[in-house]
Simulated scan of single mutants.
Amino acid sequence: MTIQIGERKIGPGHPTFIIAEISGNHNQGFERAVEIIKAAHEAGADAIKLQTYTADTITIDSDKPPFRVGAGDKPELWQGKTLHQLYSKAYTPWEWQPKLKKVAEDLGMILFSTPFDDTAVDFLEKMDVLCYKVASFECTDMWLLKKIAKTKKPIIMSRGMASEEEIKEAISTLRENGAGQIAVLHCVSAYPAKPEEMNLRTIPDLREKFGVVSGLSDHTLGTEVAVAAVALGASIIEKHVTLDRAAGGIDDSFSLEPAELKQLVSSVRIVERALGEAHYGPASAREAEEKHWRRSLFVVKNMKKGEKFTSENVRSIRPADGLPTKFFDEIIGKVAAKDIESGTPLDWNLVG
């Protein structure tokens, strides 16, 4: 199972597709958003992801309890805010987005976005994005899924807290409405998520159970979990990125800085090379040369013609120039065909 975004093929057997999510870490500064894109490119990321909404398209301006963000383990900047206040600070101005797309594409990167309502899908269609992302909280919004699917473009969907039945319904809805290429990202909707909550074995299960490309949208701190996900078969990795975690961005606290993103990309590429395929025997000509240091049968004491081979004058030692050690019992009790010096690798022409 593979999907293709532009010229990039994504799936088992292809390089991991690494997405840098800007979210609200631009702090309402266009130039900062541009710098994040450039830093992500320098780090080796393949794609940039935006979010396309306004506070008014994603919620309403209400101070009632259901609209207020609680404390718990939420980032400090979120706590006590209404949803409208939070999204007013976090949204990416729509007039920036075509310009940011050009910046990314000029660097050879793919830029796409997560739409949060039908007007955002219409806007992104005018931008001619190559694919769409579905956020974890929107994967049960069937109206939105239908709207996105009808574009017939590749879709990457985060599953968040969705149950198996909800995932099945979402995928069916997408397919029934025109989506032919679907990837599903395992995701824990906590900010930050804890490693012990991740259950990364869900990644290969998603691929096998639903017949989709699978990957990880990772909200843990650091890079270790994402690297482990690739070892388990993730074809896509998405991480939030920022220039500086201390800069006060809405998602800065659980985002990677440029040096960390670069380390992630490097580690993922090493893991890809190391995974290879199921293989037995020497892995390379260099390793094949090391066979010389296996054990084999050697004469370890001077012997006269007709003298019997015993455990005293024949031993299994390194290197591998003599007969394989499996012939030891067969050799013992036979006689030397000629005089043999100590240190001679045993061969059948020496056995009488």
Rank of each mutant, 00 (worst) to 15 (best):
S214V: 01
S217Q: 07
D218Q: 06
T220Y: 08
L221Q: 11
G222H: 13
E224A: 15
V230H: 06
A231I: 14
A231K: 09
L232M: 15
S235Y: 10
I236Y: 03
I236E: 05
K239V: 06
K239Q: 05
L243P: 01
R245I: 14
R245W: 02
G249D: 02
I250D: 08
D251A: 13
D252M: 00
S253N: 07
S253L: 07
F254H: 11
F254P: 02
S255P: 00
L256S: 00
P258T: 02
A259W: 05
L261M: 07
K262T: 05
Q263D: 15
Q263N: 13
Q263L: 12
L264N: 07
V265F: 00
S266Y: 14
S267V: 04
V268C: 08
I270E: 12
I270L: 02
V271F: 01
R273C: 11
A274Y: 02
A274K: 06
L275D: 01
E277P: 04
H279S: 12
Y280E: 14
G281R: 06
G281C: 09
P282S: 07
A283S: 12
A285F: 10
R286E: 15
R286Q: 12
E287W: 00
E287G: 03
A288L: 15
A288S: 13
K291R: 14
W293F: 15
W293G: 08
R294E: 13
L297N: 05
L297I: 09
F298Y: 15
V299M: 02
N302R: 05
K305C: 08
G306N: 07
N313Q: 09
V314G: 04
V314P: 01
I317C: 06
I317K: 08
R318D: 08
R318C: 08
D321M: 09
G322R: 10
G322H: 11
L323E: 12
L323C: 06
K326D: 14
F328M: 14
D329A: 15
D329Q: 13
E330R: 15
I331R: 10
I331T: 11
I331F: 10
I332H: 09
I332F: 08
K334Y: 12
K334S: 10
K334A: 01
A336T: 07
A337Q: 03
D339P: 00
D339H: 05
E341D: 14
G343E: 06
P345Y: 10
L346D: 02
D347P: 00
D347S: 14
N349A: 13
